[in-house]
Amino acid sequence: MNQAAHGHAAHHSHQHGRGGPGHMGDSGDQAEMLDLDADVLAEHIASITRWLPLEVSPRRLVDLGCGTGAGTFALLARFPEAHVTAVDTSAEHLRRLREKACAQGLADRVRTVQADLDTTWPELGIPDLVWASASMHHMADPDRTLRQIHDTLAPGGLLAVVELAGFPRFLPADAPVERPGLEERCHAASDRYHTEHVPHRGADWGPKLTAAGFAVEGERTLVVNIEGSRSPAIGRYALGSLRRMRDTAADALCAEDLAALDRLLDTDSAHSVLRRTDLTVRTERSVWAARRA
């Protein structure tokens, strides 16, 4: 979850589902946010891998839109005999993933493939499991991509589609004190932007999976609610997420809201989100598990 995402937002390049997540214009910023996604949401990613309806541990896995490897490493931990082919459009993300794999002694279990899935379908072998976290909603033609995944999977193979419900929320409803409810107004503006530019975000993937020839075997929604005190990364995660949201919401915000948001984003300010002690990560993550007959 890029992916993430993260999953929840390639709102500059819209490259996430084209083989790799993109969150902001600069690839270093993108990679940092993907790493924060992986750090903050690690327990939820692991719980999804445990939930997957598998009677036999898969050996050949593909992570579509792998980003810097949140899903890849969760899958490697869950299935210790497996090998993962990690696919992304970003050479920088794949480089970071390979570095992590080497550092963890996993290099021999990871293969990276750079590809734009909207233009070229790479050689992926015949996987037992395909993992697509926060990537499907950025595909130019997700129905076509699902058919390609279906035809790539081994008979009886499983596809896991994981999607976050938009950007996470972090602030209390009465924050900031001078503009209560600011975050909700930012979300409303950002959602309007994404409805126009990323029309598949928030889709019900069940019918799409069925239409592509899959049998949907499981669907669940995980509620994410993580207190800021749980991890020092949450402040930086909130900062990066609100920065991304500003890019898509700024034109729709009034001057007072935009000024209040900029104070939260000013890391030198006493009002910086990094200095708040009342942050929580609140979102939902939906998962569909579908099998090739």
Score class of each variant (00 low, 15 high):
135 S>W: 00
121 W>Y: 11
178 E>D: 15
144 R>E: 12
122 P>S: 08
148 Q>Y: 06
126 I>M: 11
166 G>W: 02
162 V>L: 13
119 T>S: 09
139 M>F: 05
159 L>E: 00
148 Q>D: 13
159 L>R: 01
136 M>K: 05
128 D>W: 07
167 F>H: 14
158 L>R: 04
138 H>Q: 03
163 E>M: 09
122 P>H: 10
176 P>K: 11
121 W>P: 00
116 D>L: 05
126 I>N: 11
144 R>I: 08
138 H>K: 01
168 P>W: 00
147 R>D: 04
140 A>F: 00
160 A>H: 09
171 L>P: 05
145 T>D: 01
116 D>R: 01
136 M>A: 15
164 L>C: 12
141 D>Q: 14
166 G>D: 04
154 A>E: 13
153 L>I: 08
145 T>N: 04
127 P>I: 08
149 I>N: 01
157 G>E: 02
147 R>E: 12
156 G>C: 08
112 T>W: 08
137 H>C: 11
117 L>S: 03
114 Q>C: 14
120 T>V: 15
174 D>H: 15
129 L>D: 03
133 S>A: 15
160 A>C: 15
145 T>M: 10
117 L>N: 06
162 V>E: 08
134 A>I: 12
157 G>K: 00
127 P>E: 06
177 V>Y: 10
112 T>Q: 10
126 I>T: 15
132 A>D: 09
155 P>W: 11
171 L>N: 04
110 V>Y: 11
144 R>A: 13
112 T>R: 10
163 E>R: 09
122 P>F: 01
133 S>E: 11
115 A>W: 05
161 V>K: 01
178 E>N: 11
162 V>Y: 09
155 P>C: 11
169 R>M: 10
170 F>V: 07
133 S>T: 12
128 D>C: 05
137 H>S: 14
139 M>V: 03
140 A>D: 13
169 R>Y: 06
143 D>F: 04
110 V>R: 10
164 L>M: 14
170 F>Q: 03
162 V>K: 03
139 M>N: 06
130 V>E: 02
141 D>N: 14
152 T>P: 00
135 S>P: 05
175 A>D: 14
132 A>I: 13
166 G>S: 07
110 V>W: 09
146 L>D: 02
154 A>H: 08
169 R>H: 10
127 P>Q: 06
140 A>S: 12
122 P>Y: 05
128 D>E: 15
110 V>D: 07
141 D>R: 13
114 Q>L: 04
119 T>W: 02
158 L>N: 06
130 V>P: 02
178 E>F: 07
124 L>Y: 06
147 R>W: 02
165 A>R: 13
151 D>Q: 15
165 A>P: 02
125 G>C: 08
170 F>W: 03
128 D>T: 03
